[in-house]
Amino acid sequence: MSLAAECPECAAKIALNDDVISGEIVQCGDCGLELEVVRDGSVTLRPAPEEEEDWGE
């Protein structure tokens, strides 16, 4: 675990696995926010998509 990125909500440092991939969902240990990994050269984090509700199947 040598990679790290900053939580966009509370600026906490979050350790990530070396093989982390884009789209992976992690949780900030400090503020609890769910975050989505963006890996395109560098590794950054953005808030994960929220959960909506919908009718039907």
Binding site: S22, V37, P49, E50, W55, G56
Partner: peptide, 20 residues
Amino acid sequence: SSFLSAIRSAGGAPRFVLKS
């Protein structure tokens, strides 16, 4: 993560949904 990346690559802003 594979679906999130695929939707973003197609120009979308992915969302999660729970169905009734």
